[in-house]
Amino acid sequence: MEHRISEPFTTEKFKDLKAGDTVLLTGTIYTARDAAHKRMLEMLERGESLPFDIKNAVIYYVGPTPEKPGNPIGSAGPTTSYRMDAYAPALLDLGETAMIGKGQRSQEVKEAVQRNGAVYFAAIGGAGALMAQRVCQSQIIAFEDLGAEAVRRLEVKEFPVTVVLDSCGGDLYQEGRAAYLESRK
């Protein structure tokens, strides 16, 4: 099933999504990879505020290439998500509602997704130029010294993602594998 969801990206809007659904996101999302996640958790440990409001936030695991003149961003394909698994549960517990990346997640992340009514989306790996076409604006808001891994605020329109982990415990990777093996009998 296909859904069109605009911000605010609340758990209420994500609660009926099921693993395997396709979603077109429109609104503000943030970028952060492992170095930025590490810094954000260190900020929280020191009692500092994060560079953006984590409540109802969607974080895209991406390190975009430099933009060409006239474009808001360069190629913006997803990063392998397990690199953020050590940090994701804490951010989900603080109100992050969705993550975008590629690949499987740890059991701790799966439990945090379900506990918080959040979702994990997969973006199309290898299609960074396509993903970049859905970015209308891009602004570095923190950790500029990290270069491509700086935290950015992106404005996206109909950004295509697929639900991998839903808030009810559905897991597309497990379900898809099971369906495939069943079809082979």
Rank of each mutant, 00 (worst) to 15 (best):
M1A: 11
M1Y: 00
M1H: 05
E2L: 14
E2N: 07
I5S: 05
I5N: 04
I5H: 03
F9A: 06
F9L: 10
F9W: 07
E12P: 01
G20V: 09
G20R: 07
T22W: 05
V23I: 10
L24F: 14
I29P: 01
T31Q: 12
R33S: 13
R33W: 12
H37A: 09
L41S: 09
E42Y: 02
L44S: 11
L44P: 13
E45G: 13
R46P: 13
R46A: 15
L50G: 11
L50P: 11
D53C: 11
D53Q: 13
I54C: 06
N56S: 10
A57H: 04
I59M: 10
Y60R: 05
V62K: 02
G63V: 08
P64H: 05
P64S: 08
P64I: 07
P66C: 06
K68F: 02
G70H: 05
S75Q: 10
G77C: 10
G77K: 06
P78M: 05
P78N: 03
T79Q: 04
T80R: 12
T80W: 07
D85K: 09
Y87C: 04
Y87K: 03
P89W: 12
L94Y: 11
L94C: 03
G95P: 02
A98H: 02
I100F: 01
G101P: 06
G101Q: 06
G101E: 06
K102T: 03
K102G: 04
G103D: 06
Q104G: 11
R105V: 12
R105I: 08
Q107A: 13
V109L: 14
K110W: 00
K110D: 12
K110F: 00
E111W: 00
E111T: 10
A112M: 07
A112C: 07
V113Q: 08
Q114K: 15
Q114D: 00
Q114P: 00
Q114L: 03
V119L: 02
V119W: 00
I124C: 01
I124K: 07
I124S: 09
G125L: 15
G126R: 09
G126Q: 10
G126H: 09
A127Q: 08
G128C: 08
G128D: 09
A129G: 11
L130A: 13
L130F: 08
M131A: 15
A132S: 13
A132N: 02
A132Y: 00
A132V: 01
Q133V: 00
Q133I: 00
R134V: 00
Q137G: 00
Q137N: 09
I140S: 04
I140G: 00
E144L: 07
L146K: 04
G147Y: 09
G147R: 10
A150E: 06
L154H: 07
E155Y: 03
E155V: 13
E155R: 12
K157S: 13
E158C: 01
F159S: 01
P160T: 09
P160V: 09
V161E: 03
V161H: 03
V163F: 01
L165D: 07
G170E: 10
D171N: 15
D171F: 05
D171G: 04
Q174P: 00
G176T: 06
G176R: 02
G176D: 04
A179R: 15
E182T: 14
R184N: 10
K185N: 14
K185V: 13
